[in-house]
Simulated assay, not measured.
Amino acid sequence: MKPGNHTFSVSEFLLLGLSEHQGKQPLLFSIFLSMYLVTVVGNVVIVMVIASDPHLHTSMYFFLANFSLTDLCLSSTTVPKMLVNIQAQRHTITYTGCLSQIYFFLWFIGLDVFLLAVMAYDQLLAICHPLHYTLVMSPRCSILLVIMSLILAHSYSLTHTILLAQLSFCTDNIIHHFFCELLPMLKLSCSNTYANQCVLIYWGGTLTILIPLLIIISYVRIVAAIVRIPSAIGKWKAFSTCGSHLSAVCLFYVSAIGVYFISSTTDSASKDRIAAVMYAVVTPMLNPFIYSLRNKDIKSALGRFLSRRALQPP
């Protein structure tokens, strides 16, 4: 993918990373390698447990498996490149590589958001309309919801990437970040970014206002339905079912809002990078623990999965 007809355009960018101090690079490499390995193992285990246990072959855990795969891909879009740059002590990325990283990063971020909304809708049906749940949330409907989420997320990332490819980057090629992120790239451009800003506002409003609003409305109805449950055991079971998803929603949006609202009001590049670490690295690492520690079905299935592995002959 090449930029438009511009007289000058950079062919590569320099990623400054999380810290410019050479003495901190080995520590950063160790920390992020450990976090990435935990992310990979945690999300892969969640997917394998759900796939191998017939008790978890429901729409709720089908969405969770897709969510874990998305988190794994999201982390893999940024962290391996950062680790390679630290190890090789060469912090450059090509123009094409930068656009590709932005495309896949936005795709998986968008997919995370849409899957969180789908999971909230699934919880709403399961708790508020239990008699119609199996009829409405059929396997075919579950697959269609995931496909629709993929298409919407693809539209989100492709629109931003195409518009970004039309911009020119004349002389300044230094990105004060550890990966190619959309907002720092727009600040580097020496051409008019009005169209990019309009699309950013439109999609930003959809992903950070409309989707969270729909999730909040779903949980208001869920809480109202749980309160009407007569037995304390039934209330606790309902709360435990949706508690892990609500925790994941809060963790994702608190960190994302920190990037696109709080950090955008300041000129501190370090705050942008710290906030990005939260939603691009830390959140995908913590989600498997949130779902495994707060969900009885996952914990039971994980125990059965580990027992089967232990009993298998070497």
Results as ranks from 00 to 15, higher is better:
residue 310 A to V: 03
residue 151 I to C: 08
residue 278 M to D: 02
residue 50 I to C: 01
residue 139 P to Y: 00
residue 162 I to M: 13
residue 285 M to S: 12
residue 195 A to W: 11
residue 173 N to S: 15
residue 42 G to E: 13
residue 302 L to Y: 01
residue 181 E to S: 15
residue 111 L to Q: 15
residue 237 K to L: 06
residue 234 G to V: 07
residue 170 C to S: 11
residue 2 K to C: 01
residue 272 D to R: 15
residue 231 S to M: 10
residue 18 L to V: 08
residue 293 L to K: 10
residue 128 C to W: 00
residue 150 L to V: 08
residue 138 S to R: 02
residue 199 V to C: 11
residue 180 C to M: 10
residue 6 H to G: 03
residue 222 I to L: 07
residue 45 V to Q: 07
residue 159 T to H: 05
residue 9 S to M: 05
residue 178 F to V: 05
residue 206 T to Y: 13
residue 54 P to H: 14
residue 13 F to E: 02
residue 27 L to T: 11
residue 67 F to P: 01
residue 71 D to G: 15
residue 182 L to Q: 02
residue 263 S to M: 08
residue 108 F to N: 12
residue 145 L to A: 11
residue 58 T to E: 00
residue 21 H to T: 06
residue 5 N to I: 05
residue 71 D to L: 10
residue 255 S to F: 15
residue 49 V to W: 02
residue 181 E to Q: 13
residue 308 R to G: 05
residue 145 L to K: 09
residue 123 Q to C: 14
residue 56 L to Q: 04
residue 129 H to G: 04
residue 207 L to K: 12
residue 160 H to T: 02
residue 49 V to I: 15
residue 181 E to M: 12
residue 298 I to A: 03
residue 22 Q to V: 06
residue 59 S to M: 07
residue 209 I to C: 12
residue 158 L to C: 09
residue 271 K to I: 13
residue 132 H to M: 03
residue 9 S to P: 00
residue 8 F to K: 03
residue 119 M to V: 06
residue 50 I to V: 14
residue 216 I to K: 01
residue 166 Q to N: 05
residue 157 S to T: 07
residue 166 Q to L: 10
residue 180 C to E: 03
residue 30 S to L: 12
residue 220 V to L: 13
residue 57 H to C: 08
residue 246 L to Y: 09
residue 28 L to N: 01
residue 294 R to L: 11
residue 235 K to T: 06
residue 93 I to G: 04
residue 131 L to M: 14
residue 107 W to L: 15
residue 100 S to W: 06
residue 192 N to R: 09
residue 263 S to F: 05
residue 277 V to H: 00
residue 40 V to H: 02
residue 311 L to K: 14
residue 156 Y to R: 14
residue 205 G to Q: 12
residue 192 N to T: 07
residue 258 G to M: 06
residue 239 F to I: 13
residue 229 I to P: 02
residue 196 N to F: 10
residue 144 L to N: 13
residue 229 I to E: 03
residue 227 V to H: 05
residue 139 P to H: 00
residue 233 I to H: 06
residue 281 V to W: 10
residue 78 T to Q: 14
residue 296 K to P: 01
residue 221 R to E: 07
residue 170 C to L: 07
residue 199 V to N: 03
residue 141 C to K: 04
residue 168 S to I: 00
residue 189 S to M: 08
residue 112 D to E: 07
residue 84 V to R: 12
residue 248 A to E: 08
residue 145 L to T: 01
residue 269 A to I: 11
residue 115 L to H: 08
residue 210 L to P: 00
residue 15 L to C: 00
residue 95 Y to T: 01
residue 209 I to G: 04
residue 230 P to G: 09
residue 282 V to M: 14
residue 303 G to M: 09
residue 269 A to P: 11
residue 263 S to C: 10
residue 236 W to H: 09
residue 203 W to K: 06
residue 61 Y to V: 08
residue 240 S to V: 02
residue 131 L to W: 12
residue 131 L to D: 13
residue 135 L to S: 13
residue 7 T to L: 15
residue 313 P to T: 13
residue 56 L to S: 05
residue 200 L to N: 01
residue 228 R to E: 07
residue 46 I to H: 00
residue 181 E to T: 08
residue 303 G to N: 14
residue 64 L to V: 07
residue 288 P to V: 09
residue 244 S to M: 10
residue 32 F to C: 04
residue 202 Y to A: 12
residue 239 F to N: 14
residue 41 V to T: 14
residue 235 K to Y: 02
residue 26 P to L: 04
residue 209 I to P: 01
residue 257 I to R: 04
residue 89 Q to Y: 06
residue 72 L to R: 02
residue 114 F to T: 13
residue 115 L to F: 06
residue 54 P to I: 11
residue 208 T to R: 08
residue 49 V to K: 00
